[in-house]
Write a protein that binds this DNA or RNA. Structure first.
Lengths: 192, 192
DNA sequence: GCACATATTGAACGTCGTTCAAAATACTGC
DNA sequence: GCAGTATTTTGAACGACGTTCAATATGTGC
């Protein structure tokens, strides 16, 4: 299948090496053939990213199945960084790729992301009882963004330029302190 | 100058529109002329990114000059998001751009990043007295990564898919809670 | 074997980054 | 002013890119 070839190339060379011609050559077809399967290269990459997203979701779900409530936050962080470190290029493609100006991501893509966050909210609920329901989700989104940023800077080599701390450690730090700190006292504060 | 043209194109169209030919056309020169000024397109973009980084540093330094120690964290977060929102495309180019496999970023680039972090560490020192010196820098790097991730997801449209919270609010949440929580009890914990 | 639908092709178009000999320009010593 | 040298700029060329499309091959029902 074309997606297998794309995944192999993406894992080896990232977004820069992912071209229609390379994918076609790898599966022994002419470049034009791929346009019978996908509208264009962007659609192929988005489809492949959907699969990567699903694998990430599955990995986090596995970690969320930990029995010990208190250990679950740390397990989720480890699962996240395990995934990023095991497939750094595919994870990069998942978030580096941007559609051209006019177009927008398909619905199943948003559903995949939402499922990821919902799973984390459910898994962390026992240790976030102090947070009221709406701000609990807000906090999880913020923590997801934090892990995402740390991983992004690490994979692109920019974190290593200014810190010797392993990215995983920074992730643990953020999540642990966020949960320990509890919710903001005034939810409407902090706006400029 | 070529950098002005590159900045104008980058601000309008992002990394996708930044081509040698477009930049050359805008300054009224042939494409080949740019290769007398820069080794290649990547070098041009890295130079332009250096200028963007310097403007970001200056904006944060301005916010760090706030007299009120307690208000400084919030001011820094606002300054960060003000910058991202005022030049989303140039900020995106600054972090989306990746050099090809072999090459690495120049030294002045790392110095710029380090200066950014050092400035934040100094500005936040009064409200982070509870953190011992080394882990204080670690925490600032983690918070920078968090703001970076939230902004990345926001600019790429992926944050809006799963949350209606403005990114700025998530940033305030993380920084406020991190500082309120204080350092980790056991600095060597959290490693898998 | 024939008609029809489907899959695949390969050439073509315009654009990209990059190179390089040739042409244009600027600068020197006189 | 001029000859000669150094520098800047050019424009054509190369290979690779995404994408399109008429032509061809392949498969299917009869």
């Amino acid at each position: 299948m074309a997606l297998d070839a794309a995944r192999a190339i993406g894992a080896a060379e990232g977004l820069r090496g992912l071209t229609v011609r390379r994918v076609a050559e790898r599966i022994g077809y002419a470049p034009g053939t791929l346009y019978n399967l996908f509208d264009n290269l962007d659609a192929l990459i988005v489809t492949m990213n959907g699969e990567t997203l699903e694998r990430l979701r599955a990995a986090l779900a596995m970690a969320a199945a930990t029995d010990d409530d208190a250990a679950r936050p740390s397990a989720l962080v480890d699962a996240y960084f395990d995934f990023v470190e095991s497939e750094p290029q595919l994870w990069s493609v998942l978030f580096e790729h941007r559609l051209p100006e006019g177009t927008s991501l398909p619905d199943w893509y948003r559903d995949g992301l939402a499922g990821l966050v919902d799973g984390a909210v459910a898994a962390l609920a026992p240790v976030m009882k102090a947070w009221p329901e709406p701000s609990r989700r807000e906090a999880v989104v913020a923590m997801w963004g934090a892990l995402h940023g740390i991983s992004t800077l690490a994979v692109s080599g920019k974190l290593g330029l200014i810190s010797t701390n392993p990215p995983r450690r920074l992730g643990h730090l953020i999540v642990e302190r966020m949960i320990a700190a509890g919710p903001m006292v005034d939810l409407s504060s902090g706006e400029s």
